[in-house]
Design a binder for these strands. Structure first.
Lengths: 341, 341
DNA sequence: TTGTAGGCGTTATCAG
DNA sequence: CTGATAACGCCTACAA
């Protein structure tokens, strides 16, 4: 690998001049500049990033810390982060599938000094504990995380609003007994969606029954298994809202096996609007989440924070969700933004 | 951030001794060792990775280059890579969603010097062109990539075998007209699965009709749209094999809308066996691919190559696929490994 | 406009 | 067993 010295020698100048050309810092005569550029490309020179970040104290790398995510959600969020980062010339140091807090903290420590900032998604625990393990004032953005106070930048989606809009829609269709398949325990998204469900029932003057809130953990299988409990309820609910699409699809599978007509005997709705939702049978009504945008926006926020440096007030943003109505809940197909509901 | 000097001063020793303790290199008296350890943790010392890799010429980071992948496949492969890398104390520099060759090459250049090795998945083009852009002898493993010769380590899956086994299964069920939804053009996986399809027809003494090979690009939507062409065929095929599950699910959706009974009037089979396959209606027969394992094994191969250094013969491995038979192709549910067919 | 030289935080090679 | 000290490759005052 050619170093800056090789380029300097070959071009007959000092390393300082080469550095100036490569970084556009300081004045260099056009002719010298041209010559250095020529030599640099000929030698396929690429600055050693370790040496550079040793002196600049910057890495042009962003850290991404993700929990054990599956499927579309994971891939879309990474895609969004990746695109925004690349747009700004940043690399991505990714550490994913952290099951518990110890793992997350270990990963966090391992990233010390290797990144200029962090996007952290930690839906399962209070983010404050996490952040203890970080160097002084590393910029970071919390994604869909349980966080109190406003000590950190945070980006979330309209979990509460989306869930309650969907449940209100079911109620408007005439359903009086609406069950819910809950997401993973101690998960912030799951908790917010549950709150939305409860609020919708309450505001419709309907009482809620704890038995209607069935445990789940965001997997297809948990949705499948939840149907057993659902069908045991007396009187049986006529609609079920799942905290995500994977569970909704699992539940639809079990309902079909139990010969329960969808939406005739049981309306079904999900959350996320993963790409496959429109292709299942019947097509699944869902709450659309702009997943890729979530990643992109988080990255933009992080880069702003990095640029701004220490003195900058923390930001808190929320991304809108959208109701997508298909056949699984019994209405005619239509789409509408949340604000219409 | 505390540096090694701070630790040395505080512990009353030289930086050399601190370094020895931290890296277990060279002898240090137990007492000194203890004291240094104590000071290091008290000061929350973490070695500066830039400085370290500047002198060691190692980064303990692996680069991962991925194309525009979606959904389960992407998340599972990353999960596998991540877990293997973490197990060995390596970080992951990820660059994904590269649409074309120019983007991939740019990403490749950007990683120069930042990684000790690369896992590259580049199903769309001959990997040789890619590798031109790399420093001399950077270790790398090609994942499911189009590669000729054996200049590089490569890991693939049994695309050909899996596809032909599934088509043979359909033929064994009595189907005489089996169509195929093809994957993206110029994609290596797609090409191999198509070869498998053709070989199965041939070995059954069945002629193949180019019209039965319908274009697709691995998305649900392309599967959905392909059904139009499928149903126009005269005589109509009684079975269709899709090059992946996403297309199979899209096709099933369109077939349902066209009131074509599955599997009665049209048997359907896919490839990948994504988690949702068993929950669609009817449950989808598919060729299971050990996606996570693919990532893990690739990473292990890469780490071996890194450890071995220059002089090491290239390896070429193939991961087995498995036939998973569910209701969508009309047989009673059962499972069997490829070798049984 | 250009060059010299110091230093970023480690590791590694010598002496002691 | 321990301590100086020279790299590693680059950036950046400061001089010229």
């Amino acid at each position: 690998m050619a170093t800056i010295k090789d380029v300097a020698r070959e071009a007959g100048v000092s390393v300082a001049t080469v550095s100036r050309v490569l970084n556009d810092s300081g004045p260099v005569s056009p002719e010298t500049r041209r010559r250095i550029r020529e030599v640099a490309t000929r030698l396929r020179f690429a600055p050693n990033s370790a040496a550079r970040s040793l002196i600049t104290a910057r890495t042009t790398t962003l850290g991404v810390l993700l929990p054990d995510l599956y499927g579309e959600f994971f891939s879309e969020v990474i895609r969004g982060i990746d695109q925004a980062a690349r747009r700004h010339g940043y690399h991505l140091l990714v550490s994913s599938s952290h099951a518990d807090r110890a793992e997350t903290e270990a990963a966090l420590r391992a990233m010390r000094g290797r990144v200029d900032g962090l996007v952290i998604m930690s839906p399962d625990l209070d983010a404050r504990a996490l952040v203890q393990n970080l160097p002084d004032r590393l910029p970071l953005v919390l994604l869909n995380s349980a966080v109190q106070g406003d000590a950190y930048d945070a980006l979330t989606i309209e979990n509460y609003e989306g869930a309650s809009a969907m449940v209100r829609h079911l109620i408007a269709l005439g359903h009086r007994r609406v069950a819910m398949l809950k997401g993973a325990a101690r998960n912030q998204d799951a908790a917010d969606r549950l709150r939305g469900y409860r609020a919708a029932l309450r505001s419709a003057g309907m009482e809620r029954d704890p038995a209607w809130e069935i445990a789940g953990n965001f997997t297809e299988e948990s949705g499948y298994r939840a149907v057993e409990a659902l069908l045991r309820l007396e009187p049986r609910p006529t609609a079920v809202f799942a905290a995500n699409d994977a569970m909704a699809i699992g539940a639809m599978s079990a309902l079909r096996e139990a010969a329960v007509a969808i939406p005739g005997e049981m309306a079904v709705a999900g959350f996320d609007d993963i790409p496959i939702a429109r292709y299942v049978s019947p097509p699944l009504s869902s709450v659309r989440v702009p997943i890729g945008e979530l990643g992109e926006r988080a990255t933009e926020m992080l880069l702003e924070a990095i640029r701004a440096g220490k003195d900058r007030t923390t930001r808190r943003e929320t991304l809108a969700t959208t109701l997508v109505i298909r056949q699984s809940c019994g209405s005619a197909p239509q789409q509408g933004s949340l604000t219409e509901h």
